[in-house]
């Protein structure tokens, strides 16, 4: 892949999937957990992971002009985010290679790999438009 996949601001991995706690034996669950923690520890030691947290399977959603608060489907949904890592790597290739090591993949976890924006992309768009208008 080309240099347009370079990103100085790092990448975010979002782990999505249904709650792994359902359907795995205690031994399997312990194995996945241990592998996951060792993976994060290694990435941290290598300076490639700078932050990461599991999210509780609970929370709320705020939406709309009226700012209504509702319960989210955080336990059942296959789309629910269960945790994240922030990676200090410079290319999409490297971020994807790390995502492919995720110990949850065989159990149905999907990893979303997203470049972190240095500044709000909306503000960047506006500036680009303003420059274009001046030309």
């Amino acid at each position: 892949m080309s240099t347009q996949n370079q990103n100085q601001n790092g990448y975010m991995l979002l782990f999505r999937g249904t709650d792994l706690r359902k359907g795995l034996s205690p031994e399997e669950l312990q194995k996945v957990t241990d592998n996951w923690m060792n993976w994060f520890k290694r990435l941290t030691e290598e300076g490639k992971a700078v932050a990461g947290n599991p999210l509780e399977r609970e929370g709320k959603i705020v939406a709309g002009k009226d700012r209504v608060v509702s319960d989210g489907p955080f336990a059942e949904s296959k789309e629910a985010v269960g945790g994240y890592f922030l990676l200090d790597v410079a290319t999409m290739d490297e971020a994807v290679a790390i995502a492919r090591e995720c110990p949850g993949l065989p159990y149905g976890i999907r990893v979303e790999v997203r470049p972190v924006a240095g500044e709000c992309p909306i503000a960047a768009d506006i500036r680009a438009e303003a420059q274009f208008a001046q030309v």
């Binding site: 706690r21 312990q30 609970e58 939406a63």
Partner: peptide, 23 residues
Amino acid sequence: SLAYGTSVEVRPLAEECPLDVRA
């Protein structure tokens, strides 16, 4: 940005991996 149709998910960060607690 709520006024423009975004929605915001509010999630507690876990101290310990919930998988570990369950195991």
